[in-house]
Structures are given as structure tokens and as C-alpha cells.
Design a protein around this nucleic acid. Structure first.
Length: 823
RNA sequence: GCCCCGAUAGCCCAAUGGCAGAGGCAGAGGACUUAAAAUCCUCCCAGUGUGGGUUCGACCCCCACUCGGGGCACCA
């Protein structure tokens, strides 16, 4: 009964070699043909950075994205699944310095390597839409967009104390500082006063926050939470305090205006202009300057230690509390941030831990104004921050926190002393970088005309040749040394002028790349409205959670700006988001130094592409980390061979009428198709694979000890298996498809239509419980009613004996699955 | 310190508030084989982190805690 072919081992290497060129000829994944009437789906994987070959993490991410793209193709959608490269950035520049060559060489070599690997990995990408962000054709539009933002005041320069990485010798965005360290090189970040370019993302803080409502249930809750925290909106009040000997009052921001009567001193940020001004000419001036120097010397790491003792200097100045006329000492300290709120606070030590720590260190008074039932903060050292009854606060006495806030805000507003206000943790996005390998900022500095945008017809402003430039980090952009390039004429007045020598943060490149794919060959505009309206927004975005804040927030910002400009008809770029976990080994991230690095190329060599893809998908929920020590690629190979073998066993002809097939296997097939589709749509890919495994087992059994290989149901099942497998294991699936007598490509064969009638089971085993404990099981029809099943249960001998004549208090019937008799 | 997520068999993981087990890994036994590999078949294993609560009924909902993972971190 067995043929030599059946016993021949499944040769994945041969199958891989066989199908790649055939698929190249068919191009099953080309999207957007003019005559395409299918509904669209835009499935997007985060594009890779071209640092070497693909690794295990890529293998997971692209396997998941591929399952989704291939699923929607099978479901009859016109799917666009593009790829490109995020190709500017420091690693290329650092490699270039090390190898003493142009970063272009390293970058384009790596892109070629990764592209070849993706092809071998059978990614269902539409290769016609590829672009790299370092292509002049792409960064031209970066510059164009920069100018559009500049026109609208959304790109601007300002002097500010910025994050400076001494390692990379460049400024960093807030988002690129992780726990005080540079995200790239882990060097402790310091502050430096510099004039830099910013994008005004804070103008969009409210919309970035409020529009997340649209994403609820479609993005991981975790990401939404992280973005909310990052934007950090707080509701409070600005209150004006008169300063003795100063004509204008100082405005402070507080979230607790209800505690205004508890303010016992004022603190201004030591690095603020206000502090310097208040200290000037006082007896405290020298001490203040000394203190300010010592603070500047401290690194961010030191500043971040929350248990660090509070420090500060009394400025010998006084503020007047507007609600009770009290004279308050004004202190300068580094625990107040210059760039949040107004850089000045009222200190209410009884109800704010930081203020209390400061008050205790400096022997300043503490006054309770909210009775929370807890012990006196002045004695315990623990500030009471909860709700309670307001005391010692004049007209506010007796009110609750919420009522007191409302009352005092109203009063302040009426008296012209303040008003309710909002603040955000989010800061403007610092986009200039003092490095070579990025998009040149398209601005010319002219003595007469100021900042002048490079005219659109002169774009792209090409990045000058790296030859002859010293790329080593030195705190100033290498472009500044390219004198031929830097010295230019003002586009407005024609006079001598200089180009801005900084380049853009690479996050600018990735903030709109998803808009470019539909128009990747358009030379006249970054994207055409027609293409955008056809394809956008992205229906499904897939990528790592590492970008939960940076890239995703910036992309949302860009989308909103472009929407406002009128270039887009939507305001959220990514409708659904899936964050895959990491691939780890023995519980920790893979790294060469840790000695637990698994090479993707080795795994592919040993087990084949399909088995690796399957292992990634089957290992567990996609958002969980895959621990490679827990998965069994050889188990995947075994399963794929098992499925493949079925295709050789089927003896019926293609096109045979399935309706005449054996019914129980047919039911199993349709249930698997139905369940797997549901699982894929809810990202439970591991469950979908399990359903296919079940069906493989059932089909094996049907061939060996059931209706036999000739039964049409066996063909139906095997074809269904091949199609379901085509999402995960495209080579095996294609090979099965051919052995079943079909022509390639299986990728576009279509998901079989599920016959609803076959989803209904003939009989269901119902349970009968007494007081929730299972006493008996009975076979019932799936269409049985509640009262029928209840009657059956009560009449059952076992149950009747248990009841022993007693009358049940209550009977819960849930046809057709369960009856619970409560005694 | 604040916020979020998780905990089911030796391991990875399934279970619209209704039979705790779908699937896999590992393990054991058997069939086939001169033998091994491969293949096929069968089997073993937990009562869902802990303590309460709601419910006719809780892995699932609520409260408290333990442990693990992640995010933010002087944001007034």
C-alpha cells in the first residue's frame, strides 16, 4: 500500500530551489493592477535597518506579517504588502568610518543581502514598490516636507539645553534618551545649550491623545498606554504670584490649586532665566551661581536618582501668595524643571512628597490644608496626596478636593489671578543631527533674509560626496567642512549665504514612508492623492514594540500635519497594529557576547524556510517572546512532512465532487477552515496552526483506517490543509498543491468557502450537573430546546436516583450543552 | 515610587462565565524492520500562583497579596 515516493523523505532544500524561480515568473504578490476589482488591504511590516543580514527577529516579524498578507490574499483581497529600507543612520556612518569608505557602499551592500534573504524566506512582498530612505529620490521628499512644515511654523529653531551624547557627538531627541543613556551607544547623556531645529509636535498633543480613541481595541492597549503616559497631559491651573521688588508677577503651574493655602514657599528651576533674574543683585547671587554650576556638572544619571537628597539655594526674594497675602521665600532648585509648566512652582510640602522632602531638608514650614485622616506629614515625612476635607483655607474650608479645585479656579479667574491650564510631558521633537549620513536640512542661512527654504525646483538638495570629508564625530556636522557645498547663494536675494549643515533625525524618514509605497515611482510629488485614497490608511501594521513611542508617535504626528495641509483624508495612519515579541534564547535577548546567538542562516540551512516560519508562528501568541530553546524546528519539519505526505496519498482526481465525500472528515475540514480563519483574524496564529495539525491527524486517520485515500473528502481535506499551510509554509504548500494536480500559485488559490451546514454537529454531548457538579453526560441533538433538555435531564435514571424525590430549587438549562439542577 | 501586562501538565501553550486539554515538545510502550532511522498507533501527566468575594456554576468577573515581565521616572 505504500509507494517508494511516500517513504521518501520530504526534501525541503529541493522544494525551495524549485519554486523560487517559478514564483518570480508568476509574481503572485503584485498589487494594484489597474483592472483589479478586489477590495484593498494594506498590510505593512516595519521596514528594516540594513545592518548586516536578517536575523531571528526579522524572521519572526516577517513570518507574522506574511501570514496576515497571505491570508487576505486567499480571502480575495487586493493586498499591498510592500517593503523598503530605513537606510540612513549612525550604524552605516560608524561602519564607514571604521572601513574608511563611503557609507553608501556598506548600506547598499546590506540592502542587497537582506533583499536576497527575504526572497529566499518567501516573503510575499511586492518588489515593484521598493525604495530606500537614503535614495535622493526619497529624501528629496523629506526635504520637501520639511519645507512644508517650516512654512507653517511647525519646523523652527531655538536655543535650548538639549540632550547631548558625548559618544555619538550629536544631539538626541527626548525619546532617544533611555534612562539617561543614549539609546544607540549607552553613553551617559549630558546637557548642552545649542541652537537646534525642532518640529512642533506639542501643537498636536491634544489630538495625539484624543484621537487614540479611534485606536482603542485595534492597537495593543500597552502601546496606547505608553503613548498616553508619554504625552502626559495634566490638568491644573496657572496662578500669578506677585514678587516683592518686581513689576510683573510670576506664574506658577499646579495640578492642586485646592492646596493654594498650603503653599509655604516657592521654587524656581535653577537653570531657568527667571532664577538668574531673581538672584541678580541679591546677597545670594554668588551662592546661586555656584549652585547652578554644580548642577550643570551633574549628569542625567545623577539627576535621575529619585532618592537623591534635595538641594537648593534661597534667593533672598519673596513672593506673595495671592489668596492670603503671605510672604513666601523663593528658592532655586534642580528638582523643578525649567521646561515644564512655567519653570516655577508653589511648594505645598504637606501634600507633595518632593516639596516635603525639600522643606524638611531646608527647614521650611509645613502646613496641612487637606484633612485626609492620615498622620501629620511634618512628623511622618510622608506627604498626604489623597482626597479629604479642605482646612485652613478660608472660604474653601469643608470642601472636597474636586469642589475646592472648581471653587478656587473660579475665584482666581474672577480676580484675574489665574486660570485653569493644561500641561504636557511631551516636548517638541528635536530633529537636527550633527552627523553626515542623513537628509540635509534644506535651509539656507542668509544675513539679510534669515532662514530661506531651498526652492522646490532645486530639490533634492543632494548630500555631498563623502570623499574628502572627515566623518568622525566632533560635535559639528561633517557637512560644515564641505565648503563648496556649504557656501551658496541666497535663493531670495542672491547674496552670499551658507547652507544649514545639519542633517535630519532618521525618524523623520520613517514618519511618512508608508505614504510613499503606493506612489514609490512618482517623481512629481511625495505621494499622489489618488494613490493615497486607494490604499491608505494602513489596514494592518506589524512590528516590534520597541517603536511603541518614537516611530508610532512621530508617524501619527506627521499624518495629522499632512491631513491639515490637505494631503490626506484621514488622521490616523495605522488602523490596526500588531506588536510581535522578541526572539530570545534561554530567557534572555540573543547576543554574541552572551554566547546565546542563534544564526538565522544556520537554522534555515538545517530545517528549511518553512519549518522556521512555522516554528515562529506556532510558538505561542505573536506578542509573546519566542524562546528559541522552547521551540522545536525539527518538530515543525516532522509536521510539514506529515502534511506533505498526505498530498501523495490522495488518489482522487482534481475537481472531484466533494459533496460525495465521507461526512465526518468533511465536517472536520470545514470546521478547521472556519476556526483557522477566525484565529488568524484575531492574531491567534498558533491556534490556527493547531487546527491544521488536527485536520492533518484526522486526514491521516481517514486514509489509513477510515474511508481510504480515494474518498473525495480526503482530497477536500488535503487541499484545505495545503491552502491553510500556504500562509505559513509556502514552499510545502505549493509542492502539495502540485502533487494534488493543481497549477501554481497556491498563494492565490483562494480560501475554500465554508459550508455552514457542515459546521453543525450531528449530536452533542451535554452535561447534567447537580449543584454545579457533573453527574451525567447525555447525547442530544444540537437543536434541542431548553425545556426539552431539562426534561431529559430530570428523567435520567442517575439523576432521578440522586434527586430521590426531592424537588429542585431551580433548574438552569443551557441547550444544547448543559443542565444544572440546584437543590 | 507610579502605571500596565501576565501566572493552566516536566516544557511551550488552548479553553463566548458552562465537561480544564485543542495542538505541540519532551517521556513511555507497541507495530513495521535482520537492525536502525523514518513512519504509524497507543499511553502517561495538572485541577488553573495564594487568600477571599460575586454566581446555580469561576482559569475567566471583583478585592487583597505573592512572584515574573514591561513602561515611565523630581512633569508640581
Amino acid at each position: 500500500m505504500s509507494t517508494s515516493q511516500e517513504h521518501q523523505a520530504y526534501d525541503f532544500a529541493y522544494v525551495q530551489e524549485k519554486w523560487l524561480p517559478i514564483w518570480d515568473a508568476i509574481e503572485p504578490f503584485k498589487s494594484g493592477r489597474a483592472d483589479d476589482k478586489r477590495p484593498k488591504k494594506y498590510v505593512l511590516d516595519m521596514f528594516p535597518y540594513p545592518s548586516g543580514d536578517l536575523h531571528m527577529g526579522h524572521a519572526e516579524a516577517y513570518a507574522l506579517g506574511d501570514v496576515i498578507a497571505r491570508y487576505w490574499i486567499q480571502k480575495g483581497f487586493n493586498v499591498m504588502h510592500p517593503i523598503g529600507w530605513d537606510a540612513f543612520g549612525l550604524p552605516a556612518e560608524n561602519a564607514a568610518i571604521k572601513r574608511n569608505e563611503d557609507p553608501r557602499i556598506w548600506t547598499y551592500e546590506n540592502i542587497a543581502t537582506q533583499k536576497a534573504s527575504m526572497r529566499r524566506y518567501a516573503c510575499s512582498f511586492d518588489w515593484d514598490r521598493v525604495f530606500n530612505t537614503c535614495d535622493p529620490e526619497y529624501y528629496k521628499w523629506n526635504q520637501w516636507l520639511f519645507i512644508e512644515l517650516h512654512k507653517r511654523g511647525l519646523a523652527y529653531r531655538k536655543d535650548s539645553a538639549v540632550n547631548w551624547c558625548p559618544g555619538c557627538q550629536t544631539v538626541l531627541a527626548n525619546e532617544q534618551v533611555v534612562a539617561g543613556l543614549c539609546e544607540r551607544c549607552d553613553t551617559a547623556v549630558t546637557k548642552k545649550k545649542l541652537n537646534q531645529w525642532y518640529f512642533k509636535i506639542t501643537d498636536y498633543a491634544d489630538r495625539l491623545l484624543d484621537d487614540m480613541e479611534q485606536l482603542e481595541g485595534k492597537w495593543p492597549e500597552k502601546v496606547l498606554m505608553m503613548q498616553r503616559n508619554w504625552i502626559g497631559r495634566s490638568q491644573g491651573a496657572n496662578v500669578n504670584f506677585l514678587i516683592e521688588g518686581r513689576s510683573t508677577p510670576v506664574t506658577i503651574y499646579t495640578t492642586r490649586p485646592d492646596t493654594l493655602f498650603g503653599a509655604t514657599f516657592m521654587v524656581v528651576a535653577v537653570d531657568s532665566e527667571l532664577a538668574a533674574e531673581l538672584a541678580a543683585g541679591t546677597a545670594a547671587e554668588d551662592k546661586f551661581k555656584q549652585y547652578r554650576e554644580s548642577v550643570k556638572a551633574a549628569s542625567d544619571i545623577d539627576r535621575l536618582a529619585t532618592d537623591r537628597p534635595k538641594s537648593g539655594v534661597f534667593l533672598e526674594r519673596y513672593a506673595i501668595n495671592p489668596v492670603n497675602g503671605e510672604k513666601l521665600q523663593i528658592w532655586a532648585s534642580d528638582y523643578v524643571l525649567a521646561d515644564y509648566g512655567t519653570g516655577a512652582i508653589m511648594a505645598v510640602p504637606a501634600h507633595d512628597q518632593r516639596d516635603l522632602d525639600f522643606a524638611r531638608a531646608m527647614k521650611l514650614p509645613v502646613r496641612v490644608v487637606v484633612e485626609t485622616g492620615e498622620e501629620n506629614p511634618a512628623e511622618t515625612g510622608i506627604a498626604t496626596t489623597g482626597d479629604g476635607k479642605i482646612v485652613n483655607s478660608g472660604a474653601l474650608n469643608g470642601l472636597s478636593k474636586a469642589d475646592a479645585i472648581a471653587a478656587i479656579n473660579k475665584q482666581l479667574e474672577a480676580d484675574g489671578l489665574g486660570k485653569s491650564a493644561r500641561n504636557y510631558r511631551l516636548r517638541d521633537w528635536l530633529v537636527s543631527r550633527q552627523r553626515y549620513w542623513g537628509t540635509p536640512i534644506p535651509i539656507v542661512h542668509c544675513e539679510k533674509c534669515g532662514e530661506v527654504a531651498v526652492p522646490a525646483d532645486q530639490l533634492p538638495l543632494l548630500l555631498p560626496d563623502a570623499k574628502g570629508l572627515d566623518l568622525k564625530p566632533k560635535g559639528q556636522s561633517p557637512l560644515a567642512a564641505a565648503t563648496d557645498w556649504v557656501n551658496t547663494k541666497c535663493p531670495t536675494c542672491g547674496g552670499a549665504a551658507t547652507r544649514d549643515s545639519d542633517t535630519m533625525d532618521t525618524f523623520v524618514d520613517s514618519s511618512w514612508y508608508f505614504l510613499r509605497y503606493p506612489s514609490s515611482t512618482n517623481h512629481n510629488e511625495p505621494f499622489s492623492r489618488a494613490d493615497i485614497d486607494t490604499w491608505l490608511p494602513v489596514d494592518q501594521y506589524v512590528g516590534g514594540v520597541t517603536h511603541a513611542i518614537l516611530h508610532l508617535l512621530y508617524s501619527r504626528f506627521f499624518t495629522k500635519v499632512l491631513h491639515d495641509i490637505g494631503m490626506l483624508g484621514f488622521n490616523e495612519p495605522f488602523t490596526r497594529l500588531l506588536n510581535q515579541g522578541m526572539v530570545v534564547m534561554d530567557g534572555s535577548a540573543m547576543s554574541k557576547s552572551r554566547g546565546n546567538l542563534v544564526r538565522l542562516s544556520d537554522e534555515l540551512e538545517n530545517h528549511g524556510v518553512d519549518a522556521i516560519r512555522l516554528s515562529m508562528v506556532f510558538s505561542g501568541p505573536p506578542e509573546d517572546d519566542v524562546d528559541w530553546s522552547d521551540v522545536s524546528p525539527s518538530g515543525s519539519v516532522k509536521f510539514l512532512s506529515r502534511a506533505w505526505r498526505l498530498s501523495g496519498d490522495v488518489t482522487s482526481k482534481p475537481g472531484v465532487d466533494f459533496a460525495t465525500g465521507e461526512i465526518s472528515l468533511r465536517k472536520a475540514t470545514h470546521k478547521a477552515l472556519n476556526d483557522a480563519a477566525f484565529a488568524v483574524e484575531s492574531f491567534r496564529f498558533n491556534v490556527a496552526v493547531a487546527r491544521v495539525m488536527e485536520l492533518v491527524n484526522a486526514t491521516r486517520k481517514a486514509i489509513d483506517s477510515g474511508p481510504g485515500a480515494a474518498d473525495p473528502a480526503v482530497r477536500e481535506a488535503t487541499e484545505a490543509i495545503a491552502i491553510m499551510l500556504s500562509l505559513v509554509a509556502p514552499f510545502t504548500a505549493e509542492e502539495m498543491w502540485e502533487r494534488l494536480g493543481h497549477k501554481p500559485a497556491i498563494a492565490t488559490a483562494g480560501w475554500p468557502v465554508v459550508d455552514e451546514k457542515l459546521l453543525v454537529a450531528d449530536a452533542i454531548e451535554a452535561v447534567i450537573q447537580i449543584n454545579g457538579k457533573i453527574k451525567e453526560r447525555i447525547e442530544v441533538s444540537p437543536t434541542i430546546t431548553d425545556s426539552e433538555i431539562e426534561a431529559l435531564a430530570l428523567a435520567h435514571p442517575t439523576i432521578a436516583a440522586e434527586l430521590n424525590g426531592a424537588t429542585p430549587k431551580k433548574v438552569i438549562a443551557r441547550a444544547p450543552k448543559l443542565v444544572n439542577i440546584v437543590l
